[in-house]
Amino acid sequence: MRKQFKAVALSLALAFAAPAFAQDELNFDAYREMLADGNPAELYEMEGEELWRTARGPKNATLEQCDLGLGAGVVPGAAAQLPRHFADTDRVQDLESRLMYCMETLQGIPSEQIIKGKFLKDERAKLAALVAYVVTHSNGEKIAIDLSHPKMKEMYALGEKAFYYRTGAMDFACSSCHSQDGKRIRATQLPNITKPEGAAAGWGSWPAYRVSNSQFWTMQHRLWDCFRQQRTAEPIFASDVTIALSVFMAGKGNGAEAVWPGVKR
């Protein structure tokens, strides 16, 4: 944690104070619980809601006609059913690649700007705010992605393969850290993504606000940093591997409740 906290007035309930926790337990559940009320991800959600309704881009249009899978402009529940196969693109898209597609087709903002951009910057930062807005409207919903389309089936199979795919300077695969129960890297608890509950814990708690660096991270951002620490080359934004892993995680987590947006230490 980069900052120390102190209460500024006795009569105030200040949730930005870090609670004392027993270090030997390395259990941050109570801390997370305290953070959940007043999750700063709401600030991004507010920004995203405004962006959704604001006419922008070369076409000076809003995103209110964007079809996230439940029909043009339907936001509630949409994130819980993503990624999905979209007939109009004949592709499997996650929330981020679908929003990027809407920004390009409706607003005229070239996808290249986002793909070649950087996390937390410019159009990719705006996309993240839109993600915060959309997922908030699936908070508490059950993850329910439809794996029946052949392209979804294939993405799931590819995602599973990618999950176990060892590569890079340190021979790591996703499975190196995420295939056993109750393990930690340093003090960070690792979900066992080979099991439905672990997959749901991972998929259903990102995007999230990270208190340790005061940043809002989408799932694309989360996966990108996993690969960085895995010592692979850099995954391309919204590339097949990111979609495949997302389908694998969401598919395995199907039926579990999503807590969106999450909050992490």
Binding site: K3, V8, L12, L14, A15, F16, D37, G38, P40, S214
Partner: peptide
């Protein structure tokens, strides 16, 4: 109903609750 002094020790994106 409330007047408070903040300082650099308060976190980014502060959250405040009071009654």
């Amino acid at each position: 109903v409330l007047s408070a002094q903040f300082g650099p020790s308060v976190s980014t994106n502060p959250y405040l609750a009071f009654k």
